[in-house]
Structure formats: structure tokens, C-alpha cells
Nucleic acid binder design. Structure first.
Length: 588
RNA sequence: GGGCCUGUAGCUCAAUGGUCAGAGCAGAGCGCUCAUAACGCUUUGGUUGGGGGUUCAAGUCCCUCCGGGCCUACCA
């Protein structure tokens, strides 16, 4: 039994996330976490909302709410949606928590002690009317290169030239439109991660088993141009974690907060502490996941994220972790594996929050239950390349895989059995239902059942290998093939024919098919948790173990076991409905 | 501009440098009648973007051209 710590990239607090966000971190992390738990490993699965930064402040202002209230409300919205998609976080925390305040300040103090913090005075654009400093991309103006009137301070999206905000012609605030701007001097803390460049490169270079996407992005940042640059880790904002050096004030930094990208990854740790607090456990309970010296040396730490998050997780956060252990006194856990994803597009273009283009988590659940989405998203997860959502593809995936292959299998088995044999599994019930040998006596297998068991053993081994390697597309493909085995078996065994001449044989086939349903429920649970429960409920079971011993698993349900014919597991999406949805979600 | 990824059947994707490049969907034919007009079997379909090179052997490695995508550090 292994111990595995799993974190999903933190969704930003600013509004409901779309399916592209979901598929790139939370959902694959959930499938992995569910699988490892099913295999009996000790898993801690952590996520949280990322609540600080300029966009949160602006969104709160737009909503007419204090930022703290806005974030609390949106946290609940995101929590409910996570529950709606059956994301099995052990804790869903908040980067604005007290725990994160303390830990972030603690890490900053340690980094300062390590000589890795530098105070730098810089000049930034300040909007007098907005009363705030403006990040580069919150400044708009005319592009000096191409004349595009709505160029942003960091880059002109028309001619793609990179800009400095002071280059813009007639610059204005993107927030208020005010042209009442000035350049002001402001002092910030920088993390001197360039000093850790060689250490980071050696660490990354050893990760030969990581996705290319993870390592190639990291290596580019390490070695491109002048190499890894130091980063500002503070901002002039009201909402955030006040800059302190550990528990002490930081002279000269009054009124400033830490940059969201400094405190967000630390929230992985803080959220684990929040989990311990929420479950009434002492600090040791979370430290044994994060501190090598306090019990975490056997923990494997796996992070899931979209490619946009890779630089922060391969460089900045590790620099924080490594730097904080400068004297060997605080060996925090470094990530062991980074599973990164490309983007999911919507019908050939990007999902867009601002344009209302694509499907958002709340809308998705209003259309169909979560398992439909989980299945399509995971069987099309953008592992190797960007992938593309179309309603046509979604319809085909749902109708063929879920309705025709899995749903129909459960339907044909339970309906046949109920019509011919009644409400219990046919055959003579064993006299001692708990005795495995006794069950075996009443479950004599013909060569057909043996062949199916052998086929399944191979396929389940492949399925497990895929899941362990986090090859989720391949795992989904293999799971589907496992479902198909059931239909092949029924077709060749043909209990509807056997029953005319050999009722005992028909009964044995039926029992075997019911055991396949039970097996499929267990195997499918990482992808389809709600459906798995419904399948088991039809068999009168609350839960079932992973089929470590496949032969025993296929004999688990004896003659005499009661069952119900469940309602249709998956309704099909018809062409009319699909057309409706296409229109509704076409965007602006 | 620079860097990285990518191009394989009508579509979505697989293939440690090594049998005849494989699956699913779509198409065609046959079978079955338990089932959500579902299922099963068989089958059509490829000059692996173009060109050159290395090798006994290239979808895979190298060069080049063409197409698509992402990143490029103060959004997070």
C-alpha cells in the first residue's frame, strides 16, 4: 500500500469554470484519486479556490460586494459544482484561509533568511481615478507598431508585438477607461530563483518519465535567453496576504500583499492543514503528507494541471520549497510527478468566459448528469494535443459508449433475467452463502466463461497499467473494451436460446452476466462514480472491492441473490436535442 | 522574431527504429431477437503533409519546405 498525495491546480475564484478548466486538472486528478483509493492506497486529494489578485477585486467591485464576501460566495458555488461533478476532494480549501496566510508569511520569512529575497524599487503605471496600480494587461491604448486601437500593455493582440505599457499611444485604464495615469515608484520583493537555476535544472533533468509538456516548458524557462528570471512576489493590492516576514512585520512593505502566484501553490499545503483542522486532527496529521522529516518521506506527490500552470509548478513553487530548506531544517515535499494537459477547444475555437463561448460547469449539469460529461471529457482528454469538443462528438461518445455498450448490457441482462427467472439470480442457492467453495459448486463454468475470464484478466491488467501511468485516454478505451466483452459473451452464449433446451445452462449464463455487471461497476467507478453506484444498487450492493482475484470476483453473486431491473442508465442524445444545444451554445 | 509541440483511414486517435501501420466512430454485407432500432460477426478504406538523407530496416532518426497549435515571464 502506497501513500499518494494528489493536488489539482486551483481554479481561480472569479466565476464558474468551463469544461476546459475541468478537464485539465480537477477531473483527471479525481479519476486517478478514485482509482488509487479503490486499489487500497492511502490517498489525500486536495484542491482549493485561488482567491487573490486583481481579477477577484474587480469582479467583486462589479458585483457590488466586498471582496471577502464575493470570494466566500463564489467558493460555495465552486464547491457545489465540484460536488455536482462528483469530484472526491478530501478537502476543498481556500487560498484566503488563515492557514495559508500563516504559511505564506512563514515561507517568505524562510526565503528571506536564505538570502533569496531582494527588495527592488520599480516603476509601474498607477491609475489615479481607479486608485490602483495597473498590471500591464489592464492598460489599453493604440499600438505603436500597427495602430490597433485596443492593444494591451503587455502585447498587441492584433500584430502580436510585445509591448511595454509606456509605449502605448494614448494609454488608458482598461478598468475605467480613465486616461488619468501616471508612473509611480513602488517597492517590491523579488524571489531570487535565478540563484537556484542549476539546482532546478538538475532536478527537472532527472524527470525523464514526466510528460514532455511538463519538462520542455520548464527547460525553456530555465535556459531561454538570459535564463531563469527572478520574480516579483508582492503586489500593491488590498485583497491578499499581507506581507510579513514570518510572524514579524516587514519594514517598508506595509500595505502590500503577496502575489497570488506566490501564495496559491502554498495553499496546497495550507489546504492540507485546513483538512486536518476540519477533521479535528493535530498538525502532525497534515505534516506527515508534506514534511520529509515528519513522516512524508514515503509519500508520492502528484500534481495535475493545464499547460499554462507548468512554469509555476516546475520552477517558482519548487524554488520556494527548495529555498525554504536552505539550512536543512525544513524539508518540504517536492512534487514527484507533474501530469500536464493541453487545452480543450470548443467547436474549433477557444472556450471564452468573456464571450460566453463554450459550456460552463453549471450549464453542463443542467443538461445531463455528470457521468455523461466525465466520460466524454476523459475519453477525449487533451493529453498529447489540444482536443476539441463538438456536440456531434459528444453525442456519438455518449450514445455509443454509454448507452449502447454499457447501459444496454445492463438492461438486456437484467430484463432477460427478470422476465425468465424472477427477482433473484436463477439456480439452486448455496446452502452456505458465505462459503467460497460452496459458491464455486454452483457456478460451474463452461469453456466460454473461462475464455471470458482470461480475456478480462488481460484487459484489466492493461486498464490498471494505463491508470497507474495516468494514461487516461487509453484507460477509457480499455474500459470500453472491457464492457464490449460482456456483449460478445451474451451474443455467443445466447441464454435466450439455451433456456429452451437447457434451463440450468441458461441460469448459469445469467449468473455469470450478473457478475459481469458487478465487475463493471467496480472497474468503471473511477470514471463513472454515480453510474457505478446505480449498477451496484440494482444488485442490492452498497459497495464492492476491486477484483484483485478476478475468478472470485466473477463468482461473487450466487444463485438466489436478489436484484432489481434498474431504470435506463443512460438516455441517448437525439439529433433534435443536439441541434438545440448547438444553437444555444454557439456563443456571441 | 525566438522556442516547443504537432501533421497517420472520411472523423477522433494508437503504434520501445523491426511481422502485413492498428482501434473506435462513420460506410457496406451477414447474423441474432435478450436488450435503449440496441448487440455480435465479417468487410471497404492508408504513397503515414511534400521532397531529400542516414540505416540491413524509417510513421518513428536527420535536413528542408508546407500546414495546424501552444508558450514567450506584471492575467491567473
Amino acid at each position: 500500500m502506497a501513500r499518494v498525495l494528489i493536488t489539482s491546480a486551483l481554479p481561480y475564484i472569479n466565476g464558474v469554470k468551463h469544461l476546459g478548466n475541468l478537464v485539465g486538472s480537477q477531473l483527471p486528478a479525481d479519476v486517478y484519486a478514485r482509482y488509487l483509493r479503490a486499489r487500497g492506497h492511502e490517498v489525500l486529494f486536495i484542491c482549493a479556490t485561488d482567491e487573490h489578485g486583481t481579477p477577484a477585486e474587480l469582479a467583486a467591485a462589479k458585483a457590488g460586494e466586498p471582496v471577502a464576501d464575493y470570494c466566500a460566495r463564489l467558493w460555495q458555488v465552486q464547491k457545489d459544482l465540484a460536488d455536482g461533478f462528483a469530484l472526491s476532494f478530501d478537502h476543498f480549501g481556500r487560498s484566503s484561509s488563515t492557514r495559508n496566510h500563516r504559511l505564506t508569511q512563514h515561507f517568505a520569512g524562510r526565503l528571506a533568511d536564505a538570502g533569496l529575497i531582494e527588495e527592488i524599487s520599480e516603476r509601474q503605471v498607477y491609475s489615479i481615478d481607479d486608485g490602483r496600480f495597473l498590471p500591464d494587461r489592464y492598460i489599453e491604448g493604440t499600438c505603436p507598431n500597427c495602430g490597433y486601437p485596443r492593444a494591451r500593455g503587455d502585447q498587441c493582440e492584433n500584430c502580436t508585438k510585445q509591448l511595454d505599457p509606456t509605449e502605448l499611444i494614448e494609454p488608458r485604464s482598461a478598468i475605467s477607461g480613465s486616461t488619468n495615469l501616471e508612473v509611480r515608484e513602488t517597492k517590491h520583493l523579488h524571489l531570487r530563483q535565478s540563484k537556484l537555476r542549476d539546482e532546478l535544472r538538475a532536478w527537472i533533468a532527472a524527470k525523464t518519465d514526466w510528460p514532455l509538456l511538463s519538462t520542455s516548458i520548464a527547460l525553456k524557462w530555465l535556459d531561454d535567453g538570459d535564463g531563469l528570471q527572478d520574480r516579483g512576489i508582492t503586489r500593491d493590492l488590498d485583497w491578499g496576504i499581507p506581507v510579513r516576514r514570518g510572524t514579524d512585520p516587514w519594514p517598508g512593505m506595509e500595505g502590500k500583499v503577496f502575489y497570488v502566484w506566490f501564495d496559491a501553490p502554498i495553499e496546497y499545503i495550507a489546504a492540507t492543514a485546513e483538512w486536518a483542522d476540519a477533521t479535528g486532527q493535530p498538525d502532525a496529521a497534515w505534516q506527515r503528507w508534506w514534511r520529509e522529516d515528519l513522516g512524508a518521506s514515503d509519500v508520492r506527490y502528484v500534481e495535475f494541471m493545464g499547460k499554462d500552470n507548468v512554469p509555476f509548478h516546475t520552477l517558482s513553487f519548487p524554488a520556494t520549497i527548495l529555498g525554504a530548506n536552505f539550512d536543512g531544517a525544513e524539508p518540504w515535499k517536492l512534487v514527484n510527478y507533474i501530469k500536464s494537459f493541453n487545452y480543450l477547444n470548443y467547436d474549433g475555437g477557444k472556450f471564452s468566459t468573456s464571450q460566453g463561448r463554450g459550456i460552463f460547469m453549471d450549464q453542463a449539469l443542467g443538461i445531463l448528469p455528470s457521468d455523461y460529461w466525465r466520460w466524454w471529457l476523459m475519453s477525449n482528454v487533451p493529453e498529447g494535443n489540444d482536443s476539441n469538443f463538438t456536440w456531434e462528438s459528444f453525442q456519438a461518445g455518449v450514445n455509443k459508449d454509454l448507452a449502447d455498450v454499457l447501459g444496454n448490457f445492463v438492461s438486456r441482462v437484467t430484463k432477460f433475467a427478470h422476465a425468465r427467472f424472477g427477482a433473484t439470480l436463477p439456480g439452486t442457492p448455496p446452502t452456505e452463502p458465505s462459503s467460497p467453495t460452496c459458491l464455486a459448486d454452483f457456478s460451474e463454468w463452461s469453456p466460454a466463461e473461462r475464455a471470458v475470464a482470461e480475456d478480462l484478466a488481460r484487459r484489466i491488467a492493461a486498464y490498471e497499467a494505463n491508470l497507474e501511468a495516468m494514461e487516461l485516454r487509453k484507460a477509457a478505451q480499455e474500459l470500453r473494451a472491457i464492457w464490449v466483452v460482456g456483449n460478445e459473451y451474451l451474443q455467443s452464449a445466447a441464454p435466450w436460446t439455451a433456456i429452451k433446451t437447457d434451463p440450468a445452462r441458461a441460469a448459469a449464463i445469467t449468473r455469470f452476466a450478473f457478475n459481469l455487471i458487478r465487475l463493471y461497476a467496480v472497474l468503471s467507478r473511477p470514471f463513472l462514480p454515480d453510474t457505478a453506484d446505480r449498477m451496484l444498487a440494482a444488485l442490492g450492493l452498497a459497495d464492492a472491492d476491486w477484483p484483485t482475484d478476478l475468478e472470485a470476483a466473477l463468482r461473487a453473486l450466487p444463485a438466489g441473490h436478489g436484484f432489481e431491473v434498474p431504470p435506463v442508465l443512460f438516455a441517448k442524445l437525439d439529433d433534435t436535442r443536439r441541434a438545440e444545444l448547438e444553437t444555444r451554445f454557439a456563443g456571441v
